[in-house]
Measured scan of single mutants.
Amino acid sequence: TFEVERIVRKKIVHGNTSYLVKWKNYSSKDNTWETEDDIRTKYGDLVDDFEK
């Protein structure tokens, strides 16, 4: 199971928000862009903290 360590960046393309996710126990080269809906479902607190 993958676990988010932190959110690195945010991008908005054509009105759709995605977050660059750093995965726990993986290197930064393994970071992936994930949709806001996918990340918010399980890691809403991390998204809220990133947006502060």
Rank of each mutant, 00 (worst) to 15 (best):
residue 1 T to K: 14
residue 1 T to C: 15
residue 1 T to E: 12
residue 1 T to G: 14
residue 1 T to N: 13
residue 1 T to S: 13
residue 2 F to P: 14
residue 3 E to H: 06
residue 3 E to T: 07
residue 3 E to I: 11
residue 5 E to S: 03
residue 5 E to R: 02
residue 5 E to M: 04
residue 6 R to W: 10
residue 6 R to L: 10
residue 6 R to Q: 13
residue 7 I to Y: 00
residue 7 I to M: 01
residue 8 V to D: 02
residue 8 V to N: 01
residue 8 V to E: 06
residue 9 R to H: 07
residue 9 R to Y: 08
residue 10 K to G: 03
residue 10 K to W: 04
residue 10 K to S: 06
residue 11 K to L: 07
residue 12 I to W: 04
residue 12 I to A: 05
residue 13 V to I: 11
residue 13 V to P: 01
residue 14 H to C: 15
residue 15 G to R: 03
residue 15 G to E: 03
residue 16 N to T: 14
residue 17 T to S: 05
residue 17 T to R: 05
residue 18 S to M: 15
residue 18 S to V: 15
residue 18 S to D: 01
residue 19 Y to S: 00
residue 20 L to T: 02
residue 20 L to H: 02
residue 20 L to N: 02
residue 20 L to S: 00
residue 20 L to P: 00
residue 21 V to P: 02
residue 21 V to H: 01
residue 21 V to E: 00
residue 21 V to L: 03
residue 22 K to A: 06
residue 22 K to W: 04
residue 22 K to Q: 10
residue 23 W to P: 00
residue 23 W to R: 02
residue 23 W to F: 04
residue 23 W to D: 00
residue 24 K to T: 06
residue 24 K to C: 07
residue 24 K to G: 04
residue 25 N to A: 07
residue 25 N to M: 07
residue 25 N to K: 07
residue 27 S to G: 11
residue 28 S to T: 09
residue 29 K to L: 12
residue 29 K to M: 12
residue 29 K to V: 10
residue 30 D to F: 15
residue 30 D to Y: 15
residue 31 N to C: 15
residue 31 N to M: 15
residue 32 T to F: 02
residue 32 T to Q: 02
residue 32 T to G: 02
residue 32 T to E: 01
residue 33 W to Q: 01
residue 33 W to N: 00
residue 34 E to I: 15
residue 34 E to W: 11
residue 35 T to A: 12
residue 35 T to L: 12
residue 36 E to M: 07
residue 36 E to P: 02
residue 37 D to F: 12
residue 37 D to G: 09
residue 38 D to K: 12
residue 39 I to R: 00
residue 39 I to L: 15
residue 40 R to Y: 06
residue 41 T to C: 11
residue 41 T to W: 11
residue 41 T to M: 13
residue 41 T to V: 14
residue 42 K to G: 06
residue 42 K to V: 09
residue 42 K to C: 13
residue 43 Y to D: 04
residue 43 Y to P: 01
residue 43 Y to S: 05
residue 44 G to L: 09
residue 44 G to E: 08
residue 44 G to K: 15
residue 44 G to Q: 13
residue 44 G to S: 14
residue 44 G to H: 09
residue 45 D to V: 11
residue 45 D to R: 11
residue 46 L to S: 05
residue 46 L to N: 03
residue 46 L to Y: 05
residue 46 L to M: 12
residue 47 V to D: 01
residue 47 V to C: 03
residue 47 V to I: 13
residue 49 D to I: 12
residue 50 F to W: 10
residue 51 E to M: 05
residue 51 E to D: 07
residue 51 E to W: 04
residue 51 E to F: 05
residue 52 K to T: 09
residue 52 K to L: 11
